[in-house]
């Protein structure tokens, strides 16, 4: 089955089994390794990507469903000012420990700040509620998200 979609701003065309998950399409067929397999149950958020700009668990989406749509992983947000601010705040704020949940959490945080440049602490919590982190206890990542919001230049 051919799947044509836009990955990180570039058109890709991929021949893949009909039942393949977006997670596997990205990791195995396209070599996008920042997308992590944490549960394959749609519960942990380690495989979060943007689909049409919205954060989704790529382990819950059949690859066929992204036909004609836009998929963004952390690689595709490299130079986005919001992501640059988030990276800096995460690194300087001790928000990174093992790093396995980090790409997925950053994607969720990016989507939050893109839509809501000055979130409340509770809005930050809600935005990453689906990104389980077993290392940090969330307090420093949440602080980092709010810090990144302050650092991001207003458009």
């Amino acid at each position: 089955m051919m799947v044509d979609f836009v990955l990180n701003g570039r058109a890709v065309s991929c021949d893949a089994p009909a039942n393949i998950l977006l997670l596997d399409l990205l990791r195995s067929e396209l070599g996008v390794l920042s997308v992590k397999r944490g549960c394959e149950q749609g519960e942990c958020g380690a495989c979060t990507v943007l689909l049409g700009g919205r954060p989704v668990n790529s382990c819950m989406i059949l690859a066929a469903r992204v036909e004609g749509r836009s998929v963004t992983t952390i690689e595709g947000l490299r130079d986005e000012p919001i992501m640059v601010a988030l990276r800096k705040a995460f690194m300087e704020g001790g928000a990174v420990q093992c790093g396995f949940c980090t790409p997925g959490m950053l994607i969720s945080a990016y989507a939050l700040l893109r839509d809501n440049p000055s979130p409340t602490p509770h809005e930050a919590k809600t935005a990453i509620e689906g990104n389980i982190c077993r290392c940090t206890g969330y307090a420093l990542p949440l602080e980092a998200i709010l810090k990144a919001a302050e650092m991001t230049p207003a458009e």
Binding site: S34, V35, I74, M91, G99, T102
Partner: peptide, 24 residues
Amino acid sequence: SVVRTDALDKVLGRAKFTADYVPR
């Protein structure tokens, strides 16, 4: 407190865990 030397790879999604070493 210093910035962890492994943090950059981790925030860029470049940090390699076991599954990331396994060829297709």
